[in-house]
Write a protein that binds this DNA or RNA. Structure first.
Lengths: 218, 218
DNA sequence: GTCAAAATTATTGTATACAATCTTATTTTT
DNA sequence: AAAAATAAGATTGTATACAATAATTTTGAC
C-alpha cells in the first residue's frame, strides 16, 4: 500500500524533529513547509495534525504549531517508561516466545557481540536495536509491541551518544546474555527485572545522557 | 486555552467511536461529517488525520478513512498493556508518592467503598476510575501518567460492563485495600504485582469481557 | 442472460481564495 | 520620551473549486 502524501510529509517532519533540525518551541511555518515539500498548505496542515497528536508538536490556536523537544525531565520520564515497557515485553516473552523467535533473539545478540569485538559502535547501535525489537516481538502482544517500537524510535537519537562512553558496549552486551538466559528458562520476573535495569537511566548513565543532550543542542 | 475546531471535532469523533456509534470498518464519510459538524471538509480531514494517528481509524489512500474497532484479541492485548502500565505506575508510586497524593488515593478508595455499600455500580465505576488515576499521578512521571490515562480512556467502555457481574465490585474493592497498603509501606514490587493482577483479564473476567463485547456489538 | 467495456457518478486529494486573528510597525497623544 | 491607539502586514482557519482516482451504473457484444 502506497502511503498517502500526508503520511509521507508527517513522517519526514518527524524524522527532522528527531534529528534535532528544529529547535524546541520553533514554529512550523506552513508556508515555508509548503514550499519545502512543493505542495499547498492543505496537506501540510493535515500532516501537522498528526505531529500534534503524537506529541511531537503543540498547537496553539490562531498562533501555529510549535515543535516540542523533550527537556531533561521529560526525557528521564520517557526512559523510565521505556524501561517498564521493555520489562513487560520481557516478562511476556519469557512465557510465550516461540523457538524461532528465541533463535532470532540469540542471533541478534551474536551480531551484537561481533560488533563489540570489532569495537564498531555504529553497528552495535543497529544490532542492539534489533535485539530489543526481537524481545518486543517475542511478547506476542502486537499492541504492546507497537507501543514499545514507537517509544524506542523516539528515544533512538538519545541512545546513540551513550554508546560512545568507554565500557558501555561491553556492559550492555553482558546484560543481554543474562536477559536471554532468563527468557530461555522462562523466568519472566527475572527477565523483567534485568530489562528494567538494562534500560533504566541511573548513576553514570544519567550523566552520559545529559552529556548527550548538550551535544544535541549544539 | 480554547481548543481548536479541529481538536473539538477530533475529540467528538473519538467519543462517538468509543461509544460504538460506528461499526468496525465503516468509512468516515467526509461530506456527511462536514454536514454533521456544519463545517467544510477541510477541518474534517484534519481531524481525521488525528484519529488515524491515534489508531482509532485507518487510512487507505484514495479510498477513505475507516474506523478500527478492536477485536477480542487486540482487546486482550490492550488490557495486558494496561495492566503493565498500572503496575509500573504502582511501582513508582510506592517509591515516590507524596503524603497529599496518598491521602487522596485513600479518599478515592473510601468513595469506592461507599459505592459498594450502596451497591451503586455507576458510582463505583466513576470512583474506581479516580482511584486508578491517583495512582498514575502518584507515579510522579507525567509521561507515564499520560500514557496510562490515554489507555484507560480507551478501555473505559469495556470495563463498565464487567462491573455488572456479581461479586465483582466487592472483589475489586478488596484488591484496592491491598494495593494501598503496599504503596503506603513503599513495597513497589508488591504494589506492581497486585495492580497487574487487579487489571489483568483472566479466568472469569475473560468471559465477562467477552460477554461485554457482544453486548456492545448489538 | 451473462460478462466485459465504457460511461457516469461519487469520493478523495490538492490548490487557491478569502475571512479572522495575531503580530509588528507607525502614528498619535499625553 | 513613553505609552496608547491605530494601521499595516503576516499567518492561521475555513470554504470552495477543480483534478485525480475509485466505485457504480449503463451499455453493448456474445
Amino acid at each position: 500500500m502506497e502511503p498517502s502524501r500526508t503520511e509521507q510529509i508527517s513522517d519526514t517532519l518527524e524524522q527532522l524533529i528527531f534529528k534535532g533540525e528544529y529547535e524546541n518551541g520553533q514554529r512550523l511555518d506552513e508556508i515555508k513547509l509548503a514550499e519545502l515539500f512543493n505542495v499547498s498548505r492543505t496537506p501540510i496542515r493535515e500532516a501537522l495534525q498528526r505531529l500534534v497528536k503524537s506529541g511531537l508538536a503543540e498547537q496553539i490556536p490562531r498562533r501555529g504549531v510549535f515543535v516540542r523537544q523533550p527537556g531533561p525531565i521529560e526525557l528521564l520520564e520517557m526512559f523510565e517508561t521505556m524501561a517498564e515497557l521493555e520489562a513487560a515485553c520481557g516478562r511476556y516473552a519469557a512465557a510465550r516466545i516461540s523457538d524461532d523467535a528465541l533463535k532470532r533473539l540469540i542471533q541478534a545478540n551474536n551480531s551484537c557481540r561481533k560488533a563489540v569485538d570489532r569495537a564498531d559502535i555504529d553497528d552495535y547501535y543497529l544490532e542492539n536495536e534489533i535485539f530489543h525489537q526481537e524481545i518486543y516481538l517475542g511478547s506476542t502482544n502486537t499492541f504492546l509491541q507497537n507501543k514499545a517500537l514507537s517509544l524506542q524510535k523516539r528515544l533512538k537519537p538519545y541512545r546513540r551518544v551513550q554508546l560512545h562512553f568507554r565500557g558501555r558496549m561491553a556492559q550492555s552486551l553482558g546484560e543481554h546474555e543474562a536477559i536471554i538466559e532468563a527468557i530461555k528458562t522462562g523466568d519472566g520476573e527475572l527477565a523483567a527485572t534485568l530489562l528494567r535495569g538494562h534500560v533504566t537511566v541511573q548513576g553514570e548513565k544519567f550523566h552520559q545522557l545529559m552529556a548527550g543532550l548538550k551535544q544535541k543542542a549544539s
